[in-house]
Design a protein around this nucleic acid. Structure first.
Lengths: 340, 340
DNA sequence: TCGCACGATGTAAACGATTACATCGCATGC
DNA sequence: GCATGCGATGTAATCGTTTACATCGTGCGA
């Protein structure tokens, strides 16, 4: 059906070997012949068959990414980072989504086998064992934000624990004593780590103080409910740390509705730095998670592993504190002049 | 290096043919032998080599998408739609980005050749001729929002012209007489069409009225500048139609800063319905472009073409009018009761 | 004029799977 | 006892490339 190298060879009255050499820029081809072959190839719209090529060359020039989903801002940013690194090395990106189940992750793994030179995997529902039994041993792999207890894969993760510590320390530094946390869902890797960071700082800095935890599920609604609850407290906390921005936003609306001034009456902080964070009023103080950087670093690690063999096994990427309007800044640290 | 079907065959003391038959569920294999082979395959972590498989089977079970970019909400949504359709048919999605140039589009096309069974292409900088000379004739293809003058590819596009007409008609219906437009960049397919829709409606309904065009570039900043200009006009328009939501938002901020009430003093409308549109105050009236639907329909068209040969060549998907707070609604049409 | 080196080209063996066809062994029917 | 048929298995061709090796012709030095 489609035109192959043989068709070009027949048309040009040469062997397939000569066509291959001519088109791949080898030196030992008479210039006239090369031109003739190139013209014929263009006229026939010949394009080398990728599968055949990568079969013999044992190289696909492609890296595969298995993500839980393909859409939403998070994955969009992640792909952007991976794309930057891949493009730099003239590699293509094959993206596959494993949606819900561990079974689908395994299926995606099989489907990608032999089509990619390396794998980037993010799979919240896959543990180390599943991966161990489904990953082809010969394919370099880098995990992103994925549990892999015990097994020593290359892995990169967001430093949720450190980020939470940073934020709570910042709130303490602003002079707040009683800091409540709106936590994320239980058994969620990110949520657990952020909560742990909160606990660690608070129990070290204010051992006497009882921590105040409100459970949310990362949704704006659950943040709103937490905000309502906080507004009604007899002894209100001076600051609220939400485990993600969406909950912080919900909380902000609830506090406003209750007639409380943020940050005058109560400070508020989130985590993630979603784009909307800077558009609400007052703009939200939060931890910026550089997702694109995570993707880019993971891809770079993979590319290095593909070239040189095994790499340093693990790394984290640190979120960055973004101070905006929703928390007090002590007078001494306040910037000299700042409009709007 | 990696384990092949031969390794499994050797280990199981059978021929490669038997291994292939056993693993692919053919009937004529003794049950005991099949089990033994399956166990050995699992133990050895054998996974069939995708490239080799698709070479002989002449089928990749993959559809390729070539997009100008991989990130940003637009592409994220587009991919979501394509993913839905692909997943339904057990196809994988291979996404490649062609970034800026037409040359890169051609390169991406070559790289995908022989790796996919069909192609979805969105390439704002590619015209019909470029595609015609770089598309393998045997690969089914569907274009999305891509110019292909003359050539008869399958193509799907957003009905920008119709959407703009709808919005301008709505603004007229609200009683506004003088309607200005903040247009998008010149030579941009989407921007051109939206502007054309504005012109068509206005010149038909108000032939005497001179149209007011302010040039923007789809960025929030350019919308802000347009808003500043509008606020300063001697004879202010009663309504402003921005060619996309980002510019509408920028304009909204400028109008607010100038002390104008939206929609009291001036109505405002956008195009796209980005998520932020409903979060600003007042929430933005806009045309919802169902990008995911575009992607899904394109993928479905492609899949049908892959199965049955040529399809109806062209189609558009219509944006939907979303009336929110930034334009007056005549009393007669105002909903009875509506909170928040 | 012959032999040799070298550059251009052709021949054929890979790559890793699937599958048409050949083969083998065994049960069945005469 | 032998032909027949059938089910299980092996052999080898095939897909479209690349590339090691063989071949061929030509120019050059002796």
């Amino acid at each position: 059906m489609s035109v192959t190298i043989k068709d070009v060879a027949r048309e040009a009255n040469v062997s397939v070997a000569t066509v291959s050499r001519a088109l791949n820029g080898h030196t030992n081809v008479t210039e006239g012949v090369r031109e003739r072959i190139q013209q014929i190839a263009a006229r026939l719209r010949y394009m080398p068959h990728g599968a055949a090529r990568s079969l013999i060359m044992r190289r696909t020039d492609t890296i595969g990414a298995i993500l839980p989903d393909l859409y939403g801002e998070f994955f969009s940013e992640l792909m952007r980072g991976m794309d930057v690194a891949a493009r730099e090395h003239n590699l293509h990106l094959l993206v596959s989504s494993s949606h819900g189940s561990a079974g689908e992750t395994a299926a995606a793994l099989r489907a990608l086998s032999g089509r990619v030179d390396g794998l980037l995997i993010m799979s919240p529902h896959a543990d180390g064992d599943l991966l161990a039994s489904n990953l082809p041993t010969s394919t370099p792999t880098v995990l992103m934000n994925t549990r892999c207890d015990g097994h020593d894969y290359n892995a990169l993760a967001i430093d949720n624990h450190g980020g939470a510590r940073t934020m709570v320390e910042h709130l303490l530094g602003c002079g707040h004593q009683r800091i409540a946390m709106i936590a994320g869902p239980e058994h969620n890797f990110d949520a657990d780590e952020r909560l742990r960071g909160y606990h660690d700082v608070l129990s070290a800095a204010r051992p006497a103080m009882k921590s105040q935890i409100l459970r949310g599920d990362f949704s704006e609604k659950s943040g709103y409910q937490a905000g309502v609850a906080i507004a009604a407290m007899k002894q209100r906390p001076q600051a609220v740390f939400a485990a993600n921005d969406m909950m912080a936003l919900g909380c902000l609306f609830a506090l406003n509705e209750a007639g409380l001034d943020v940050p005058g009456d109560i400070a508020l902080a989130g985590f993630d730095d979603i784009p909307m964070a800077r558009f609400v009023s007052p703009p939200l103080t939060t931890m910026r998670v550089n997702i694109a950087e995570l993707g880019e670093r993971a891809a770079r690690t993979l590319i290095a592993a593909m070239a040189d063999g095994p790499r340093p096994p693990i790394g984290t990427t640190a979120p960055e504190l973004i101070v905006r309007g929703t928390c007090h800044v002590p007078v001494s640290r306040r910037p000299q002049k700042k409009s709007a």
